[in-house]
Design a binder for these strands. Structure first.
Lengths: 210, 210, 210, 210
DNA sequence: AATGAATGAGAATTCATTCAT
DNA sequence: CATGAATGAATTCTCATTCAT
């Protein structure tokens, strides 16, 4: 239920009370049964509200999904950006990015499960909006990295951009995914340092290919 | 359409002709629209067959999904196992596993997309069957690794089992996923060596944690 | 937008300002989409008002429909009655009735479209009220006709009452209907004399049936 | 219930049995409550069938409406065309057109009520199809008239085309409409000759306007 | 084996209307 | 008087599945 904090961050104030409640229960349903298998009626029942209210606030089922996507990406980016402010040098950057990622997943497991779902149901509009936010989230990392001026920055330049995020977060994502679906039981937090070290090795030792 | 080969491998012979056709078109629909958004009618239309025929061959919509999951996992494991036969030592093993994984994804993109889908739609029965096959697929890797007797085997022992697969395939999976959803355009094949090297660094440099 | 005049005639004064605005936009929606397909929300949006205000002024959706029906019939009858004051003799009466009818339709096309809609949506109460007004509108014609004392009045007596209105206005109504739905493009005004002459022929030459 | 004949004419054969039943009950509902106020459930209940069957046969609610429109217009045109075969000269033509129109309305009152409903609910596709059929129905009259070679044909040429149908059928339509909605009680059949004579007067005496 | 008509539970969505502020 | 959030019944439509031919 800690994702309640996230929703308070993104939708603050009294007037958004019902909105937060609805999103909270929608998220739980989505995380538990999947987006398509969750019906409006299920959300309505859990939230002890009415269909009308749901449609009044979100217009659509897709509107709910979009709002959740948006909130999650926005929050994740804010946390990451804030943390990057304090970091100096590429290695610290990688440490912060992976560390924050793990923290966020552990603190918001339902949101994390939700983000891991393929976002197919989204129509053109919502999809575009999410794509943009996703783009921004990644872009922020690249921008920060390029502002660094330490010796490692040259090493980083050898890695193709499109590959970089996979090298940095691939293993972490993979483990978090396994943890969220209960295929492994050790919390990612315990492997935080290991995953940071592993990513750093991948990046720091990346050879120059012709 | 190269996944036709895969289906021929798993369902050979003349009598399975219609079965292959149905699975082929079902797969395409699933990969394009998602499992839930694909209706029997859509498959029927593409395959130019009849609802009756589909139910005759698969009993269920879940039956189709299960057959595809099964075929994919089985084929992926056969390819990997065959390749591992030739490998000697841990490093060659990692190389083979990542290499084969990339090859399989590139040769069977629709199957790969399909495997990346959350398999929530599956009922208890099918789900258990898939879980077992998945387990076997991973187990095979561990068994092979433990049979190796080179110096690196000691290094490997320092890595927690539940973390190993993420370190080995996490980055690769991450990049393949991005490629399959057209977020990046360079074929994974071009980064095969880079991904192998990166994984090997992660594993070989893994420190001993207390 | 000339129907604004009509509304000013029926609902004069400053205090009825919002009422007129709401009716005006409701009418446009009804004429464009039909009564059932028009939602309160659509009217609210066009009138840039609030649901509450609408319900305050009209109690009901049916209340809006009833008010419009009433206003239209009342206005049409007033115009006709005023014009009949000046007419002398049956032929002039027919001329005036058809002429005014065409003028009214051309000046209030949306109201005319609205009147042509089947008034099924109306509940018992409103329906009865409208039926009464409609009855009065027609009755006025018969009363006026019977007050005439010229030679033609004998001819008129040969025509069954229930048939008379159809003979007099049938063709005109038919053409106006076609014009309002854009099936023909020439304004009825251009055919005013022709329609008057045709109606007069039908009536004047009406033979005595056994 | 005589419209059952009409449906047998347009949808003959055993295999169309359910289709006819569904259309029959849909028509009754439409004629009684209006198109929008009739729900699929009402039709299903009367026809003692299933929602699925309805959608299987007509795809849409609009599909039902379209099928009924189409059947009505087609039948009306066939009857009229057949009758016109026997007619010689303009006057006989007018007689036949009005006579058949009245017969058709009296024999198929529900279909007639249905045709008198504004066809707003129809989407672009269906609407176009109906417009075409409607066009053909009218065109057939014009074509037949122009093939006549008697003296009256010159008189007819003075009447603008767009006006002709209103002059010919306006009064009849008006009376039938009133009869179908129970505003008058005498069957149109009794006024058949009167309406024919009246229309003929309108047409034959039509003066030349500048 | 193959076909496709028929079934009916269940899903998303709309909309008139009420009522607290 | 005005506002707009909230309600919930009703509607259209989808779709997996069955079964007679």
């Amino acid at each position: 239920m800690q994702q309640a904090d996230l929703l308070h961050r993104i939708y603050p104030g009294r007037r958004a009370e019902l909105k937060r409640i609805l999103l909270q229960h929608a998220l739980e349903c989505f995380a538990e049964f999947g987006i398509e298998a969750t019906s409006i009626e299920m959300i309505r029942e859990r939230a002890d509200s009415s269909v009308g209210a749901i449609y009044h606030h979100f217009k659509n089922k897709e509107g709910i999904v979009g709002a959740l996507f948006s909130a999650a990406l926005q929050d994740q980016m804010q946390q990451r950006t804030a943390a990057l402010q304090q970091a100096r040098g590429v290695q610290q950057g990688v440490t912060v990015i992976i560390g924050r990622y793990i923290d966020w997943v552990v603190q918001n497991p339902d949101f994390a499960r939700f983000l891991f779902m393929a976002r197919r149901g989204l129509g053109a509009e919502q999809n575009a909006a999410v794509a943009v936010q996703n783009q921004q989230r990644n872009q922020a990392v690249f921008v920060w990295l390029q502002q660094q001026a330490d010796a490692e920055i040259a090493q980083l330049a050898k890695i193709p951009r499109e590959l970089l995020l996979s090298l940095m977060l691939g293993a972490t994502e993979s483990y978090c995914r396994a943890w969220l679906s209960h295929k492994v039981s050790t919390t990612p937090t315990l492997y935080k340092q290991a995953l940071i070290d592993a990513a750093w090795q991948s990046i720091a030792q990346f050879p120059a290919y012709p």
